[in-house]
Design a protein around this nucleic acid. Structure first.
Lengths: 105, 105
DNA sequence: TTTATCTATCGTAATATTACGATACAAGTG
DNA sequence: CACTTGTATCGTAATATTACGATAGATAAA
């Protein structure tokens, strides 16, 4: 156990939960806020956030896995930015749920 | 480790993350949807959801801890319902973040 | 080429989450 | 009183998450 039984729920319920889970850590909220302001390399976020480089890299990986951000390689750096289409889709899904919880899933 | 360093982030960021985390499981999404339709005792949810009674009780505990629902004892049963004020506050906070991620935290 | 920079990943550890069955407790029912 | 019902909690187990330091690998700079 320890893993969610996602097979037993609807796609919308799973998508919604997955997106909410991605937002479910203050560091990832902070990262998103910074990425909304400007594109960042991992090092920028390391300077801002009180967490180690490896930990921030993990959080970036989680946001990337959820489809919310994307990274573009620029030399030795990786430039992260919001992935607008998926981010908008996620926002719409969550907004719909908050406004009309029964019509969305 | 394994626990979030909440001390290092703002109250809003932590609140937002905590609320999102509560929504971060499809079973809890499903429970919320049912509770929005009608008040439920734990047993009602056990019939609807493909999870055991103890597991559902745990999810209810998580939603209660996040302040989203409340339970009222009625004899041997506990009648759960949305805690409207906190739920509205949580929705507002999340909505604000989704619309204006920088103005809210 | 050597060196510096940047990031992902590995290894590790602590803690949290998810899930289930079993059980205990409380409150009605007979 | 004994019995049923409903739920929370305990015990347990598997897996996930969070966090860090160390390191490897890739690229840019000297």
């Amino acid at each position: 156990m320890g893993s969610s039984k996602t097979i037993l729920f609807s796609n919308s319920q799973n998508q919604l939960a997955e997106f909410a889970k991605a937002l479910g850590h203050p560091a990832r909220i902070a990262i998103l806020q910074e990425l909304i302001k400007r594109k960042c390399i991992c090092g920028d976020l390391v300077e801002i956030l009180p967490l180690s480089q490896s930990t921030i890299s993990q959080h970036l990986k989680a946001l990337k896995a959820a489809g919310i951000i994307e990274g573009e390689i620029e030399g030795t750096k990786v430039c992260y930015q919001i992935k607008e289409d998926s981010w908008n889709m996620a926002k719409t899904l969550l907004n719909t749920f908050l406004k009309n919880p029964l019509d969305c899933c």
